[in-house]
Design a protein around this nucleic acid. Structure first.
Length: 486
RNA sequence: GGUCGAGUGGCCGAGUGGCUAGGCUCAGCUCUGCAAAAGCUGCUACAGCGGUUCGAAUCCGCUCUCGACCUCCA
């Protein structure tokens, strides 16, 4: 069990040693997608970041229960706690049942996550599956005096809460300023305070997704689901709560308030927030119209893309930046990642071809230590990747015969590369061609070798250039010819 | 307007006081029938102005620019 991990905690705004409440067990909750439309690449970045964190904790010897919810009800269009549910709106648009919308986009989300090679969470609970738990929690908050009812809708009383609690723990904002700024915008709703938010919302007669409650038919507010589900599966206090940075100011702030108002303590010991993916310096989002869908990225069918990029290229691109930094998206950056990823995977394919010597000049321990130190330092994947590229140079030189390595160190080198690239970074080789294809290509390479041996370079070049045109790059070396997709 | 954060070389992106980040690009060289790959070498940095220090990309102040949040958003 790795005891040297440091995690940046949004609550304290600094890196802290990671000390789980009940080691070796770790409870981690991450806010999942609202499945009313396709996930875009920015959404994916968060889930890929937490996949990295999940993997590293898991392979560091912790027994992680990773809960990532599916929001399939209760997410309203605006903050006014009125108007359409996102699902109802989309259902109308697509002429489907709301639950058909939920099913459609949940499946789509899972497909995308699989393509990015993320590990499935331990539990993936849905909001609609936990209505009872949410109602119970609302009841308790009412009993504790931090909420009030107006005509079948229950609101959380932020001003009351802030008399005894720090409402803005996560963002360090000044509540007075927030109230001063927002009160004048006050509309025609029933809330007492402008910062109050709905825990339970009264259904209109035409609302399709509604449930019975002590306050009449209605549906849960967005924030209460995560509080209810995290408490149910991880306990009232657990280790890590994560999500996108954009959720911190509203969603997570309200989650903290709900848990405090209900259970009298903070839900999570460490709050982790992943930063945004940007396009030309502006945050990627659906409303800004700069949101790439993963499918558009893979095929290159988006107008801002000049070509398609594979899921592993994109994953690698994201891992090359730290999760707390914004990452700017561009064709040039993706091109660079594509080549870097290829270089990395090429080294992986050379590894089994290296032969050990009786004596060696290389020691792998230090590189491994550097990689681990980087990951221990708040999951600094870009630095760990930089260290792996040192190993890549060594592998290439070994393959060319410029260095010697002992069998023992070669074993360590192989383990290092496999551990970080496959297990921690979740990367995989995409050149998984079928056997028949490989055999055909081997035959073509054999024919070309014959031509070369007869100094028939016209034929050999014809083969090489022909293959190049269909995306196969041949590489001649003294040990024979290898190939890769170009 | 308020709060928070950021400005690093041609591009992406690490790095919080002294030690090479790394990837991609570009130029040259080596190897190779050619090509590709690989290796070696080189090139262009820390927004600006002050300050602290023996020493600052890194700390402090000011200026400029940009972004995020404050309204649904990973």
């Amino acid at each position: 069990m790795n005891q040297d991990i440091q995690i940046y905690n949004t609550l304290t705004r600094k890196k802290e040693p990671f000390q789980p409440l009940n080691p070796p067990h770790v409870g981690m909750y991450v806010c999942g997608p609202t499945v009313y439309s396709d996930v875009h690449l920015g959404n994916c970045r968060t889930f890929i970041s937490f996949d990295l964190i999940f993997r590293y904790l898991k392979y560091s010897g912790y027994r992680v229960r990773y809960v990532r919810n599916i929001t399939d009800a209760g997410h309203l269009e605006g903050d006014r706690d009125e108007g359409d549910d996102k699902f109802a709106k989309r259902a109308k648009l697509e002429q489907l049942e709301p639950m058909e919308i939920v099913q459609k986009y949940t499946l789509g989300f899972h497909d995308v996550m699989r393509m990015f090679n993320t590990l499935p969470p331990s539990i993936e609970p849905t909001a609609t599956g936990h209505i009872i738990e949410q109602i119970e929690m609302v009841k308790k908050i009412l009993e504790n005096g931090f909420a009030y009812e107006v005509d079948g809708t229950i609101y959380f009383d932020v001003e009351k809460y802030s008399q005894t609690h720090n409402y803005t723990v996560l963002t360090n904002r000044n509540l007075e300023d927030m109230l001063a700024n927002t009160r004048e915008l006050s509309g025609q709703d029933d809330k007492r305070g402008r910062l109050d938010f709905a825990l339970w919302i009264k259904a209109k007669p035409e609302t399709l997704m509604q449930w019975a409650s002590p306050w009449g038919p209605g549906f849960p507010g967005w924030h209460i689901e995560c509080s209810a589900m995290s408490a149910k599966y991880l306990g009232q206090e657990f280790d890590i709560h994560g999500g996108g940075l954009d959720l911190a100011a509203t969603h997570h702030t309200n989650e903290v308030a709900q848990s405090e108002a209900c259970n009298h303590h903070q839900p999570a010991k460490y709050w982790m927030h992943t930063n945004m993916l940007t396009v030309n310096g502006t945050r990627m989002s659906k409303s800004a119209g700069n949101g790439f869908l993963p499918g558009e990225l893979f095929t290159g069918s988006h107008p801002l893309l000049k070509k398609g990029y594979s899921p592993m290229t994109v994953r690698f691109f994201m891992l090359q930046a730290h999760y707390r930094s914004t990452l700017d998206f561009s064709n040039e950056a993706l091109d660079a990642s594509e080549k870097g990823f290829k270089r990395l995977m090429n080294a992986m394919s050379l590894l089994p071809k290296i032969t050990a010597s009786a004596t060696g000049e290389i020691s792998i321990g230090e590189i491994r230590k550097k990689c681990e130190n980087a990951m221990n330092d708040d999951f600094n994947s870009p630095v760990a990747i930089a260290e792996l590229f040192e190993a890549v140079r060594i592998i290439n030189t070994l393959y060319d015969g410029g260095l010697k390595i002992t069998a023992d160190e070669l074993q360590k080198l192989t383990e290092l590369m496999q551990y970080f690239i496959y297990d921690i970074f979740g990367l995989k080789d995409e050149d998984n061609s079928n056997t028949a294809f490989n055999e055909v290509l081997d035959m073509v390479i054999a024919l070309r070798r014959e031509a070369k041996e007869n100094k028939d370079y016209a034929t050999s070049d014809q083969i090489r250039i022909g293959l190049q045109e269909i995306g196969i790059q041949l590489k001649d070396s003294k040990d024979g010819t290898t190939w890769s997709k170009s």
